[in-house]
Structure formats: C-alpha cells, structure tokens
Design a protein around this nucleic acid. Structure first.
Lengths: 211, 211
DNA sequence: CAGACAATACCGCGATGATGTGACACCGGA
DNA sequence: TCCGGTGTCACATCATCGCGGTATTGTCTG
C-alpha cells in the first residue's frame, strides 16, 4: 500500500504543487495537507501518516512547535522539515525537537522524492549545507586558540572532579591530598579561568569543553 | 584542473579498485594511495590533495588518528571516512576528529563519486544510517521517561541561571525577588533532583539537558 | 468552597567555599 | 647552580550555601 503523507505548508501554491508532485508518482498518498499546525495533534492521530512534511514559518504555531507536539505522543512517524531557513537556530531547534530530516525548499523539486525514500529507510535526509552545519557543530573548539587557559594536569584533574559534582572534601579524599591543597589548586584555577566561584568555573569548563 | 585525491586503505584490492574507479572518471586525479597512515603529515603536506579518503582500520596509526594529525595543520582538505564500522564510537570519534563525511564501504561503488562531489560543494556526505545516528544523538533525552523531575517553570528558570554561573544573590537581583525566595526554590530543586549542592545540580542539569 | 500547588518571604545555624598570606620540596632548564 | 613552575600544606576570616522550619498569597480545580 502507498506511503501515507501529511503536509503542513502555509503557501497555497507550494502546498498544491507538493501534493501534485507526490500524487504523480503513484508511490505516495497525500492523506491531507494543511496551511497551519493548529490541530496538528488531532490530525496526526486521525490520519496516521507515515511521513510528515513540515514547513517552519507558519501562522499560529510554527513548524518546530508542531514537531514537538507530534513527538509528544508519536516517536515513529518520520518528519522532514521543508523550509527556507538555513540558519543555526532553526536547524538545531528542529533537530532537537525531533525532526528526522531537513530539506531546503530550493532543493525540493530535485530531492523530495529521494528524501522521502531515504527517511523511510532509516536515513536522515539533509541538504548538503545543513549536514555540514550539523557536523561542524560537533567538531567545535576542543581547546583551540581563545580558550587555552594553561591549566596544569593536576588543575584539569581537579576541575574535572569538581565538574562531576564533588565537593572540596571529596576531591581531597579522592586524590589523597589535604583540603587546603585542594583549595590552593582551586584558587589557581579560578585565577586562570577568570572566575570567582565553583559554578562559574564548572559552567565555563563544560561550555568550553575544558573537561 | 582535476580534483586531487589521496587514498589511505590497507586492503590492496580495494585500494586499487578505488584508484581505478576514480581515474576512470577523468574528473579525478588520484595523486597517491597508501596502505597506512605512518607518514600522513608529510604526505598531505607534499601532495596537497583536495580530498582524502581514509579507511579506519589500518595497521599502525588508525584512520581516526590520521585525521587528527591532518587537522593539526590543515583545516581545509576534505576528509571522507571510508569504512565498515557503523558503531557509535567510530562514527563520533571520526567526526570529532574532523572528518567531513562518512561513507560505509558497502555504499562505495554506488555513492563514492557523488560523495566526493558533495564534499567539495560544502556538504557532508554520510551513509543514511550514519546520518540517522548523528541526529538521534542530538535528540537524545530531552526530558524523557527517566529524567522528568517535575520542575516548575520558575524552578527551571532558576536552575538555568544557576547553570550559567550566577550566585544566589545574582539570581535574586535578576529575577527581582528576595534572596530567601531563591533559597527556597533552590531547596525544592535539590529535593526534586536528589542532589545536595550547586555543582551537583548544575552538572546534572547540563548532562541531562534539563536546561 | 476546600484543598493542592506555586511563588513569595523570613529566621537560624552549622557546613562549605572564597580569598589572602606564607611556606616547603621537587624538578628541569638556563 | 639558581630560578620558575608545580604540587603540597597550613591558618585565618568573611561570605555564601545547605537545610530545617514556618507562613502568606494567589490561582486553579474538583
């Protein structure tokens, strides 16, 4: 039986083109298409689609909120974002929300059919620039230029223990040194990181991947 | 002028097939191919490839270490991993190390040419299952089953400020409430998260993406 | 309307952390 | 050989935090 597809897209022309394009293949059955996400939960429940195509910029509830709603009760339906946004915020928010793919509208005519096939096969179709954004995000700093605070090994070790939630006492016990020694190390760490408290240090350590 | 390609692959048959496959196109110039990474730095320096195809499992230095070496001095050359491993560890290690693409060997004959083109156009070619692994990794917990601590909005807000390195005083000032109120909220947060200190709370909050 | 819950606020005390100052031993490079 | 960096330890003081209570207010809901 054909793959059931549900479309959210507020632009009427594009919405109808998508329906036409997909129906033409014979492989896909567009069970419905809507210009907004207001009733997304009911609709997904009622229509049991295999794949949802979701625009981001829609009146009322945007597509990312729509994805969150769907994921609130359904982890299985495949969701492909279909949008003009290629900035970090939108891409990552959509992915965090639970989208399975992210296709820029300029590639729709070329890649949509292929992407639907890919997402159904357990893939994660993404426009090339999106894929690159995601992997660059993983690669990030890792102690590059700006965030080299010249911590010694011992200091890094202590910062690590601190970041895992250990108190000074626990660190002292763990490393078999005195509480005052821990204090001294911590003081030096604060100096080097330019912070004034545990939390600032831990927050900085985690965010800048020092640990 | 043709794209310059450098290949690392310890299996002689596969290595020669790759060279043949690429040379056939006329579009690509395989500047060299080696069965191991021992001299990867010198070789990349000397041969100035546009694209490196890198196997992971090789004698001596493995492909992931090879990528790290290259990235130590060259951020521009495009590196595609070419391997049979599709487990989390290898994929993420390779990506963290600085690879631009990750192609499973079973797809090589079909997708290699296309992947090289894609990586040169600023994309990040990945086998479907790899792409899915990477995006599932981003989606993770996000307040699922186990880590739902029933924090109220206010509590979440305070935990967020705490995680950014604010002291109780600063939080009170920020939210225009009294220091004692902050204390009260913090107490409840500790109860709910089953922790006993700022750092534990912050560490838990960040690791479980509660903020 | 009663009861639950969230947010606010205050008190008090012991524990822990922040900060300064000083000191000593060890090691490796100038 | 002397010096700087590192790791170790101690003492002191004040600020902040952890935790036990208790209480008031407003909102939502059965």
């Amino acid at each position: 039986m054909p793959v059931r597809i549900l479309i959210y897209e507020d632009n009427t022309n594009l919405r109808e083109s998508l329906v036409g394009l997909l129906e033409l293949t014979g492989e896909y059955n567009v069970v419905a298409s809507f210009p907004d996400c207001q009733k997304v939960s009911e609709q997904v429940h009622a229509l049991t689609p295999d794949v949802v195509l979701m625009d981001i910029d829609m009146p009322g509830i945007n597509g990312i909120e729509g994805v969150k709603k769907i994921r609130g009760f359904n982890k299985d339906v495949q969701i492909i974002m279909l949008t003009v946004f290629d900035d970090n915020t939108h891409v990552f928010d959509a992915m965090y929300a639970g989208a399975n793919g992210y296709l820029l509208k300029k590639y729709v005519s070329d890649k949509l059919i292929h992407s639907i096939r890919e997402v159904l096969n357990g893939g994660a179709p993404m426009s090339p620039s999106i894929a690159r954004m995601i992997i660059s995000n993983m690669q990030q700093p890792a102690r590059e230029a700006g965030n080299d605070y010249q911590l010694t090994n011992r200091e890094r070790e202590i910062l690590q223990l601190l970041s895992k939630g250990n108190s000074f006492k626990m660190i002292a016990a763990e490393l078999l040194i005195s509480l005052d020694t821990v204090r001294t190390h911590i003081k030096r760490i604060y100096d080097k990181l330019h912070v004034r408290s545990q939390i600032e240090a831990v927050s900085k350590a985690i965010n800048e991947k020092l640990v």
